[in-house]
Design a protein around this nucleic acid. Structure first.
Length: 272
DNA sequence: ACCCAGGAAATTC
DNA sequence: GAATTTCATGGG
């Protein structure tokens, strides 16, 4: 019950850079640098001790799950070296936060959280997501809550979501839940379909445009060729990469995107 | 009071 | 069709 799962020789991972960089909204940093959060209905505390990644309140049964969640099978050091050759500013951004990894979150959770993210700020997104889980997610033994299922949310009305204070996004969440629950939008199909087809599948949902679809594919289905362009990335592309497009960043564009997104947010003076 | 926030839909030109 | 406005809410 209170077992800990340990991964040895973990490199290219910084918990703050990965868990608190705007791709997931359910992790809270503790005073000792560890993080507490819930994924796949499992509430854990994660910490790094040297190159040991420790998952507390977990067991060997979930080794594969967390190995995938933190994308430990991908060699980020090599990828960083490769994509650093594409552009000197990208090289700089990658060097700035080499501990960023792309999480493998649950597709439906990624979909909902990035619907909530539109025209919103990260602090408030976290609050809405937390209230969504507390209100409609399955309670876990330690007092935390799982992310609610599409089936559960499909039974809710826009008024039921009022306590979330999600504003105009509430009806988007209802539409997403219904379409996913009744199978009109097939998230599993999006994992393997051609990119444009996967994107179009998600965009059947009212409130899902190109950017939310790209984030869902990148953070919820590990489509690391995705290159979401939000306000920060738009600024970065105009100012830092004026002659480049998403295609310029190759098969690992999504990883490059996270380096650039984080670097840009940490250096707002670049865009004044 | 004003502006912005990991956008997208609705409206207007 | 492309450009602009609107959509809730909260923090600076």
């Amino acid at each position: 019950m209170t077992d800990a799962l340990i991964f040895n020789n973990v490199t290219d991972l910084d918990l703050a850079q990965t868990l608190d960089c705007g791709q997931s909204f359910r992790w809270v940093e503790n005073s000792d640098g560890s993080f507490s959060g819930v994924a796949f209905g499992k509430s854990v505390k994660v910490l790094l001790s040297g190159t040991d990644l420790i998952i507390e309140n977990s067991s060997e049964d979930d080794r594969r799950l967390w190995q995938d969640y933190f994308d430990l099978d991908l060699d980020y050091g090599k990828i960083r070296g490769d994509i650093s050759k594409i552009h000197p500013v990208l090289s700089e951004a990658a060097k700035y936060a080499p501990g960023i990894r792309i999480l493998r979150q649950e597709p439906y959770e990624a979909l909902c959280t990035f619907i909530i993210s539109q025209n919103n700020n990260i602090k408030r997104i976290k609050g809405i997501v937390q209230r969504l889980c507390e209100s409609f997610g399955e309670p876990l033994p330690d007092g935390q809550y799982a992310f609610p299922t599409a089936e559960k949310m499909a039974r809710l009305s826009v008024d039921d979501l009022a306590p979330l204070r999600a504003g105009f996004r509430a009806r988007y969440l209802c539409d997403a839940a219904k379409r996913v629950a009744d199978g009109e939008v097939n998230l599993e199909y999006c994992r393997t379909a051609g990119y444009d087809y996967a994107r179009a599948e998600l965009m059947k949902i009212t409130g899902v445009g190109v950017k939310v679809a790209d984030c869902t594919l990148l953070f919820g289905m590990h489509r690391i060729e995705a290159f979401p362009i939000d306000v920060w990335m738009k600024r970065a592309m105009e100012k830092l990469f004026p002659d480049m497009t998403a295609d310029s960043f190759g098969e690992y564009a999504g990883i490059a995107q996270q380096y650039i997104f984080h670097y840009s947010r940490m250096h707002p003076e670049l865009f004044e």
